[in-house]
Design a protein around this nucleic acid. Structure first.
Lengths: 231, 231
DNA sequence: CTGAAAAATTGGCTTGACCACTTTGAACGG
DNA sequence: CCGTTCAAAGTGGTCAAGCCAATTTTTCAG
């Protein structure tokens, strides 16, 4: 039961995913007690501090409940997820589908309103995003800025709010694992390339193409999410 | 900078709170680097593993960003707007434009999934709406049901929630006058007729036409709203 | 001045140990 | 036989010290 030590993702994230998987596969009943920290660490092939870091992550997202002196228990809240089999994954999928539908439509609305100035702004945002990636920072903020700047061109504050809320939902407590699994330099580079394709279509004044590419971008994000899901 | 050791809260939670406080009080600038783990642990009077547990909690909730070999950085605060704050600066006109854009796109997504059974359901809803109007009741509930039933055919719960929230926003305190001005038998009859046109397009399996008519319906609603506005 | 290599810095992870709280079960008294 | 008590075992909570790997800074040769 060893874990790849050279992965880009931190060890506690891998361990947390592994434990989530074991719970969802039914290796541990809801409400039951997990093996003691010392034993579980040995079974998973990691040290106790690393296991504890994973347990804190699992405790924060409500997968597990830790009782001092007693043990680690599978939280009742997980029951919902177990019912629909990885409902967190599915809701993340639904979220990305919703974004694909809405944001493609929004480009249609914004359509003709793009000016050279706003296009320059978008390009600057993407350059900042590229710098983030190359310099090891998380480009999340500029990712958000790109999507919101496009929405803003609709001139409709309700739509801007909507796009922002959907974007932020990836980071709600429910999807806290989203970032952990999704956030690697490789996936960010894909996202950047797709952003640039969208911008290129906008610069060419080809609104339908920009719509298609926005849709494709969010569908690809969904696919990357699904494929990164631990088995 | 000592921490109460006999508290019931776990140490990592106390440390995480303390660091959040320091950031919020401005002791650490956004984007700046925090002291190294070893130093920070000593400053806070805890061991390095305990500090690391706190950092994981802070990393998960997005307060902090950890870069291997580089340092711990204060993440750019993603300001999360609350729903209550939603309506500031947003007009009913913008709301209806947003609905027109989103709900037309949703029909495209739901598209081929309409079955004879669901179409029968939609027709029944419209009959109930007609009955409401003729018998002097407010058809608001069936109006909502019609829009939500269409959204539900997308098979995407995020979209259903979205359409529902946008519908309900007409009735937020800000738009309390909406109903008073808009809610007349004449306008409801117009709305019903437009609903029936949408349904007819769906029954004819003409998705693009249905999209156009949904868009037109909500644009017409907006127009009726504007024209009824007192001058 | 430039660029590459070495040193210092920093986070990532492990081992081993001790403390505090909870549970368990056996001894004890009724 | 049953309930109580209390000590031992089990479990999470925390700490200390150290080594490794990635990054940053410094040094120094060209």
């Amino acid at each position: 039961m060893n874990i790849n030590r050279t992965s880009e993702r931190r060890l506690y994230q891998q361990v947390a995913d592994q434990i989530r998987g074991l719970i969802q596969k039914g290796h541990f009943e809801v409400g039951s007690r997990l093996p003691a920290e010392r034993d579980l660490a040995q079974q998973l092939g990691v040290s106790r501090p690393s296991l504890r870091e994973a347990l804190i992550a699992l405790e924060i997202d409500g997968t597990v409940e830790i009782r001092m002196g007693s043990g680690i228990y599978v939280a009742a809240a997980v029951e919902r997820r177990t019912l629909s089999q990885a409902a967190t994954g599915e809701s993340a999928v639904e979220l990305m589908e919703a974004r694909a539908t809405v944001e493609a439509a929004v480009i249609g609305l914004a359509g003709a309103r793009f000016t050279p100035a706003t296009l320059r702004g978008l390009r600057m945002t993407l350059e900042a995003m590229r710098a983030d990636i190359e310099e090891g920072r998380k480009p999340l903020g500029h990712d958000r800025q790109f999507h919101l700047a496009i929405a803003a061109q609709s001139g409709n504050s309700v739509i801007v709010r909507l796009v922002g809320e959907l974007f932020d939902e990836r980071h709600s407590p429910i999807s806290s694992q989203f970032r952990a699994r999704f956030d690697t330099p490789a996936t960010w580079r894909h996202a950047l390339a797709e952003h640039e394709a969208i911008l290129a279509a906008l610069e060419a004044r080809d609104v339908p193409l920009a719509q298609m590419r926005m849709h494709a971008h969010l569908e690809e994000s969904k696919r990357r999410w699904i494929e990164s899901e631990p088995r």
